[in-house]
Each structure stands twice: as structure tokens, then as C-alpha cells.
């Protein structure tokens, strides 16, 4: 899946960043970069895809462990 960012800068300067296709902690790292760059964090929400990718990664590790 393509990694995407949608950045919206409102007329009052407030910034909303939405990520798509960025798995797990990498998404949080990217969010940290924007907070450090711009100012004060108001809201940070992990969406279902964040947890899906986390779950998929855990499942993959478990399958590998079972095989070995």
C-alpha cells in the first residue's frame, strides 16, 4: 500500500496531518516530527489501520515462532 500524508493548514494556522498506509510506530515517529517542527500537539488519534497493522505484525511473528 502506498504511504501517504494529507496535510491541511487552516486559515488560522492550525494543522491537521492524516497518514495513510504507514504502519504502526512509524506513523507515531512521523507525528513527532510534525509536533517538533510546528508547535503544540492538540490531538493525536490512532485509527483502526494503526491497530490492524500492529495485529498483523504480531500474527506474523507468532506464525514464524510456531514454524520454528
Amino acid at each position: 500500500m502506498a504511504e501517504e500524508l494529507q496535510i491541511e493548514i487552516a486559515p488560522d494556522g492550525k494543522v491537521t496531518v492524516r497518514t495513510k498506509g504507514i504502519k504502526g510506530p512509524a506513523c507515531m515517529d512521523l507525528a513527532d516530527i510534525f509536533v517538533q517542527l510546528l508547535g503544540t500537539e492538540d490531538v493525536r488519534t490512532k485509527t483502526s489501520e494503526y491497530y490492524e497493522s500492529q495485529t498483523a505484525a504480531k500474527r506474523s511473528v507468532q506464525q514464524k515462532q510456531q514454524r520454528s
Partner: peptide, 12 residues
């Protein structure tokens, strides 16, 4: 979507 972030900017 993976995450959504809202930031109030500082003008420095």
C-alpha cells in the same frame, strides 16, 4: 488511515 494529528503552531 493510520493516525490523525492536530497541531497548534508556534510562530518562532
Amino acid at each position: 488511515m493510520s493516525c490523525v494529528l492536530v497541531v497548534t503552531p508556534l510562530v518562532i
